[in-house]
Design a binder for these strands. Structure first.
Lengths: 190, 190
DNA sequence: CGAAAATTTGACATGACTCAACTGGAGTGG
DNA sequence: CCACTCCAGTTGAGTCATGTCAAATTTTCG
């Protein structure tokens, strides 16, 4: 059941069979129901989630009370609030399942002890988070340089299958425009 | 001269005296003149830069030919294009000195070999990049939820001294509005 | 089947942009 | 050290991309 994680780790570092045994004894799978939260604003985030199957999102509620999605995560992604996790401060974010989702949830103390036993995992998390940061920079680039319509088409071209998986209003907020405007773009009325 | 880096590393992991010796033999300081580039769009980014003193920025040139700053880096920050660095693909970004800046530049092969000799540095880079990613998420949150004027005041309150260090037009593009609009915000005409 | 949620549509409003002209310093070279 | 240029910043007028609101329609799901 943890194979997808082991395979992902082994893209970036090596695991001995004994490491796999240790990991199997520490990890546990959990199932998050669609719309269920694993983190809410104001809570301290103490867990990292690896998505085995399904889709999660990180979002905020803005001043007008509307949800805005900052990040989606699908199979083989980690999702958490790193600032809250590291600094032990209340989170600004909600993390919620978009579909019924299977995750490997690792509590901070467990992960800390795993990292001490298996320093080569530091390498795995280092590379994964550097790539995530790189992706966040590209995301900001697209937000800066493209119009709403361009952002939609660009995202749609890169992730046609993903667009089918999430409600339009969530994707609209991820791309930083209103659900109504998304509707007009799709209808070609803009 | 490398003390600021050693101190920064020791916030997150431990360095033995022998490690410091090795690092001293591998690192080298370089001075980047104001407006000089260390990376241009289209080049593969093969180096990470630790800022000892000064200020750098990462920017793009948009379709209208205007520069837009995606990221500033000051003392004790790393700056690079992680996607280009990891995937060995041409960068979308420029990285340039905003002031005369002293950096520790580490080439990828050098860093790779250092990381193999000193696995505890993986931990350092893991934590630094996770925090950077967390900061990027907060940045996206602010871009999403605040008006131009709010972004300016918010940034100004958090970093009053930094605002003095960079030209207004650069800061305006970082906050994602035009230089003219910045001028109107500052004059209270908006 | 019915209620609730998501999407569509149209009318109207507005925050922020673009463009162009003007002002004020900061360098630079004769 | 003056004159000139150049770059950063300011201001105002006009425009537009996208938002908001409200109502109608469609889809989802208990």
């Amino acid at each position: 059941m943890y194979d997808s994680l082991f395979q992902h780790i082994q893209k970036f570092t090596t695991l001995e069979p004994s490491d796999i045994d240790i990991l199997e004894s520490c990890l546990n799978l959990s199932q998050i129901k669609k719309k269920e939260h694993v983190l809410k604003e104001g809570q301290v985030c103490n867990t990292m989630y690896f998505i085995v199957k399904g889709c999660m999102r990180q979002y905020i509620i803005n001043l007008r009370g509307a949800e805005q999605t900052l990040q989606f995560g699908i199979e083989n992604w980690w999702i958490t609030d790193y600032l809250s996790y590291h600094n032990h401060v209340p989170s600004h974010f909600y993390i919620q399942a978009v579909e019924n989702t299977d995750v490997i949830a690792i509590e901070k103390p467990v992960l800390e002890s795993i990292l001490i036993q298996m320093p080569q995992l530091e390498r795995y998390f280092r590379i994964v988070s550097q790539k995530s940061f790189g992706a966040a920079q590209m995301r900001i680039k697209f937000l800066f340089t493209m119009s709403a319509e361009e952002r939609y088409h660009h995202f749609n071209n890169l992730n046609p299958e993903f667009v089918q998986r999430v409600p339009q209003y969530m994707l609209a907020s991820y791309l930083d425009f209103s659900a109504e405007f998304m509707s007009k773009i799709r209808a070609g009325k803009v």
